[in-house]
């Protein structure tokens, strides 16, 4: 689909020694990661290890406070940028729990989003991309993802099933074509046909122009999108990095061996789970 980007020209998302707290509670304890455009990375780790926290921090969720370290794209620091500016620099997150925006039509929302991301200098109120062109592109992308074009007229995520929400995230990915995409459990809550559609969709969309960080507990998505790198997170740290085989191993054997190999982090994980407020929040978040 796209030409291979020559080495020197591909963008780099560089995360260095990132420390993050939520409401003064430290969650990430020094995460470093480099993702190049065109690469696929898998991020795995047990529940509560901090994967979504990393994702939210990357897109600039105001609740997630960076207490140390940096996020850069091609040397430009993102730490101080708001989510809008980061999106316009080419960052995208497919949310684990996409929110509903009542009364806002999918097509209106996407037309704004696409216009902004394609014209990063755009000011509020400046014109949107032409309607016809946009409609055509949207229709085509929806068909490619096997989505009923009726969804374009619906309100964003309102009354969508879990699987439909995830597909909507992938549609946005397709329309926005970011340099770096983070997929936070985009494959969970889907029936097996939907997993295939989403996995194929991601495969079609990724390529030399996109760096992808796939957060997942399953293997299907990774079978379609074989990662060059697999990272394992435990208690807010990346404790191991390997290739696709590591993902496979974790899938088959779980995290017991990882915990054995990293007793300090395993202990930290244990003590986190015993903090009553953490448990409370975790349940609330999971709902």
């Amino acid at each position: 689909m796209t030409k291979k980007v020559r080495d020197g020209m591909s963008s780099l998302l560089k995360i260095t020694d990132l420390h993050v707290s939520v409401e003064d509670k430290p969650i990430l304890h020094g995460v470093s990661l480099e993702i190049r455009q065109g690469e696929i990375h898998a991020l795995m780790g047990p529940n509560g290890s901090g994967k979504s926290t990393l994702a939210y921090t990357l897109v600039g969720h105001p609740k997630y406070e960076i207490t140390g370290g940096s996020i850069e794209i091609d040397g430009t620091p993102l730490n101080e940028l708001d989510p809008c500016e980061r999106a316009r620099k080419g960052l995208f997150l497919a949310f684990q729990y996409p929110v509903t925006i009542p009364g806002v039509k999918v097509s209106d929302f996407l037309r704004h989003a696409v216009t902004n991301v394609r014209n990063p200098e755009r000011k509020d109120g400046e014109s949107l991309i032409p309607m016809r062109e946009f409609r055509k592109e949207l229709k085509q992308k929806m068909e490619e993802l096997g989505m009923d074009t009726e969804f374009a007229r619906r309100y964003l995520n309102e009354g969508f099933s879990g699987g439909e929400k995830k597909r909507m995230e992938i549609l946005q990915l397709a329309m926005l074509q970011p340099k770096f995409a983070i997929l936070d459990e985009t494959d969970s809550g889907l029936d097996s046909d939907a997993v295939r559609v989403v996995s194929e969709g991601v495969r079609k969309l990724s390529g030399p122009q996109m760096g992808v960080l796939i957060i997942t507990h399953h293997e299907r998505l990774l079978e379609y999108n074989v990662p060059q790198f697999t990272h394992v997170m435990l208690a807010g740290k990346i404790v191991e990095t390997g290739d696709a085989a590591l993902a496979h191993e974790l899938h088959n054997h779980g995290y017991a061996q990882i915990r054995e190999r990293h007793p300090a982090e395993a202990a930290e994980e244990q003590s986190r789970q015993n903090r009553p407020e953490t448990v409370g929040v975790a349940t609330a978040v999971a709902k």
């Binding site: 105001p62 809008c84 980061r86 949310f95 996409p98 704004h112 991301v117 926005l176």
Partner: peptide
């Protein structure tokens, strides 16, 4: 956050909501 992470400014996102 959701709207802003799709490139909308805070004002634009609030207006949309």
């Amino acid at each position: 956050l959701y709207l802003m992470s799709r490139g909308m400014t805070e004002t634009e996102a609030s207006a949309m909501i």
